[in-house]
Design a protein around this nucleic acid. Structure first.
Lengths: 232, 232
DNA sequence: CGGTTACTTGATATAGCTCAATAAGGGTGG
DNA sequence: CCACCCTTATTGAGCTATATCAAGTAACCG
């Protein structure tokens, strides 16, 4: 019984440079698990027992500060590897992951990682690149938070979301999972009130069309101009 | 002529899990270069020709936004690997590195990386961990910028600097390289004016002792309490 | 010394937070 | 299918942390 279809995953960046046989062997060690909407995939500070590849759905990854404030680290989209705390030399997860819609992931036990890497070194190379690009993103975010004010940060966040999880609709690009004002606030370091006000303003200008846990971008070009004002 | 002393570098995290022979072989491919104070090691967007290990001195890594604002990404301290853009799958450096004091680094040509990794897989594993811990730091910074106000952010930044580059002096921990108010501002997303005011206030309270491009922490414990106020 | 770079400090302006109240969806159970 | 409830979103008013503007002082460098 070929438990998992190689074709589903063979061309994910994580498996780049691996032959079909290798991919098959790696997949044999994984199981696929379904996470219903709202379910937790793993919790911050919990023992990093597994690592994952998202097959279907969307996850919100968030961190909570000691005093209870939440920050959204990112959203995981299908094809991404996540929860690789162990590969980064950690024993616990640095953040929590929650299914925002019904989702399915491949799951490997963390102890399999060193063995798999030893046998398939390209895994390590690919993992560095994955972590590297996340580092880039994180730095981008630091820079935005240091130098831009709220409106531009929100514009950037929405454009990024549209790129990662945008679904072309009748008029505009819709973000393909439920996302609240609070979520956007936690991604951009502001409050839901400010997000609400700004989205309302943009709505009036015909820039976006949004509602309860739903945002679509009607005019990406104008939004882009807000995010990156032409030099002057 | 044994150009470089293995003992200098054999126990850096980057070479963990490698035998003396391996370390020797890897070192053979590097040259050591001196960067006088103020010299550029590499420039943002420049072709990622080399990667480095800092042997001596301190570097400031910074990014410039399209509109010319600078952000300090981090300071490099001796023993660290840096400029590994290429390992992360980039062809150009995402930031610039500048010697803030006379410095010395080991330099490898980027094309050597894949070959070295193929021959010494622990390099890849160690690199993931390095990049992973930088990702952690970057996320920490995002979270601080999202949830803390300026005074706490500066407190955190100074404590981190003290940990990475603190030199125990007669009274307190001195940051071991020249650092201006502007630098601290660019690390914490504020202005030099605000940093100056806050340091002045701390000076009055006997928390720090600072001057032109010089900061030392007289009372780390109190500073820590500012950074992490006890729950309430 | 003269010039430049770093730092200090006051006064004012304002972006965005906080507080507060209301409204609109949308799911659920009767 | 309707009524209710809970979550999410909207919007106003006032406040405050911090940026900005402005001016002067101190340290270092050649």
């Amino acid at each position: 019984m070929p438990s998992l279809d190689k074709s589903l995953v063979a061309d994910l960046p994580m498996f780049a440079g691996l032959g079909d046989d290798d991919v098959g062997a790696i997949l044999k060690e994984a199981q696929s698990i379904r996470y219903p909407k709202g379910a937790s995939v793993f919790q911050q500070d919990e023992d990093a027992h597994s690592f994952f590849v998202l097959l279907h759905g969307h996850l919100r990854v968030m961190k909570v500060t000691p005093d209870g404030q939440q920050v959204v680290v990112r959203f995981v989209t299908p094809g991404e590897i996540f929860g690789i705390a162990m590969a980064m030399g950690r024993t616990t997860y640095p953040a929590s992951a929650l299914a925002v819609v019904d989702s399915v992931a491949l799951v490997w036990p963390s102890p399999a990682w060193p063995r798999l890497v030893a046998k398939h070194p390209s895994l390590a190379v690919n993992a560095i690149q994955t972590v590297g690009s996340r580092l880039q993103e994180a730095h981008t975010r630091v820079i935005e938070m240091s130098t831009e004010q709220v409106e531009r940060r929100i514009a950037h966040a929405l454009l990024r979301l549209a790129q990662q999880a945008g679904r072309k609709g009748e008029d505009g690009i819709q973000i393909d999972f439920p996302i609240s004002r609070q979520d956007v606030a936690e991604m951009t370091g502001t409050t839901l009130h400010t997000v609400s006000r700004i989205l309302s303003a943009w709505e009036d200008q015909g820039l976006v069309d949004s509602g309860r846990q739903r945002i679509s971008i009607r005019n990406p070009h104008k939004l882009f101009l807000l995010a990156e004002p032409p030099a002057g």
